[in-house]
Amino acid sequence: MDIHSELKELSKFLSDYSTCLMAVGTHTSRVVRNTSRIAQSFGFFADMTIFQKTIIMTLRDKDNSHSYSTVNKIKPMALNFEINSRLSSLSWEAYDEHLSLEQLRSQYNEIVSKPRINKWIVLLLVACANASFCRLFSGDWQAMCTVFVATLVGFFIRQKMMEKHINHLFVFIASSFFASMIASLATIYHFGNTPQIALGTSVLFLIPGVPLINGVLDIIEGHALAGVSRLINAALLIICLAIGLSLTLLLIGVNAL
């Protein structure tokens, strides 16, 4: 195989690899390091520019006489730490054991196609989590029950709407509205002593914690552009969450709270 087609095949793989890592919520410097590590194991160098929606990458050989550039879109994917962790291991494996491109491809496909945790289990665990979150803010057991039900409904709505590929900002407004609406029933019917805490906690399962932390990490590590765009996206989601909650507050009347 001549050097150009070798560069071409490897670039195709690396651009898939890096966009996938970026989409599942890995912070930027890990994406850069993993990708250049694989390139290094083939004796090449990879330089990349990362934006929120695309990755531009040039793969070159050691004396800069041959190079190949790719631009690839970052497809929207749900957060997935298992892919993050296993693809990072794959890059070390490539570095230490000099895996061939076919081996890398087949392992990559296997990792990416692994099914997620059953969504009903996720739904139940998220509801339990939000209920115990309510307890951490010193809510009583009535408030915990309210939050449990509100989260079940809100997260179910979110899962259903995400499956139908409705705009994710609208999904956030809708699910925070319905979750807080159910929790506000506790306020209206004076269920328990801490209905306010139930109302406040019912929407917290929507907080985009991982993009927030990743954004700050990116900025500290010098990938300011990627970090700021992550933070802007997270802020948009939080604003939508607040819009849904405010709708509920306006409907039930704030002066009662």
Binding site: L79, I121, C128, F133, L136
Partner: peptide, 16 residues
Amino acid sequence: FAAVASIGFAVISNPP
């Protein structure tokens, strides 16, 4: 309760 909350929020992002 913090442990329960953390398990629930962790599974959203499909960890190992």
